[in-house]
Design a protein around this nucleic acid. Sequence first.
DNA 1: ATAAATCTTCAAGTCGGCTTGAGGTCAAGG
DNA 2: CCTTGACCTCAAGCCGACTTGAAGATTTAT
Lengths: 148, 148
Amino acid sequence: MKAQNELDIAQVSKLSGMPASTLRYYEERALIKSIGREGLKRIFPLSVIDQLALISLGRYAGFSLDEIAMMFSPNGRAKLDRAQLLEKADELTNTIQQLTAMRDGIVHVANCPKTNQLDCPRFQTLVKSAARKQLMEKRVRKTSHHQK
Amino acid sequence: MKAQNELDIAQVSKLSGMPASTLRYYEERALIKSIGREGLKRIFPLSVIDQLALISLGRYAGFSLDEIAMMFSPNGRAKLDRAQLLEKADELTNTIQQLTAMRDGIVHVANCPKTNQLDCPRFQTLVKSAARKQLMEKRVRKTSHHQK
DNA sequence: ATAAATCTTCAAGTCGGCTTGAGGTCAAGG
DNA sequence: CCTTGACCTCAAGCCGACTTGAAGATTTAT
């Protein structure tokens, strides 16, 4: 007895690609809201799909769930703050630059004729700049760039 | 009674910028090796500084400690495998591209005149491609691009 | 009517990379 | 000789974002 613009958790899960456990967790964290219950079962509005896509995007861009939560107004519409967005963009630019330097260094080392890479001056530079950045930025990188 | 090319943990900590607890942890994980003890106290060879820089670099590039451990031969010299390095470089290239797309999208949204960003077609595209990537790659991104 | 499927809650577990804290040991300085 | 302080060990805790599992409720299909 569900309206055609309402979804149960299984449908949301299928449409969004997220497991039901994640959806419950997100609701607990107030990132999404179910519109009611049918018996015990949550009913979500169709709009939750867009919200979830936005959440994916935010996560992907490096926002924490707390940050994302703050981007939704109490009524559930997105309220993306321009300054905040540009700040995030800047952070991404930094990260991109560093990763680029890193990648170029790695490629160089892979092709470097020196038998012991530690002796390659360019490698040393790379190592040192990475170390310096770690110190300066106290960057907490738990990044894993591998998929598998 | 320490030779001039040997360091205690406090000196290593100061030179590397890493807390002593991290150094002990790295030794436990067999990433570094102390060369002996003076009483209870660990003595490290000077070369540990280079190794730690290399470890920083590796972490920064997204290697896990396990991966890094495998990059050191039993004698402690780095043995960087060319194929492995190039693979890492490829991963970085992917990450860089995605982050770049993300940043450009964010900047666009920040400047987009539409009042409700969800209505911006470009934003929708961005959101969708992010969602698609998450599904396809099952990328486990615990990345946090923020410092603080 | 009853069994199977699907949902519910809540607590606890997982992962990686450390940090923290309690309690113990040891070398040097006063 | 004795205190101080730098070091030690080992176990436990922390973080974020979920996942897992047990036990119960409800709906749906037979």
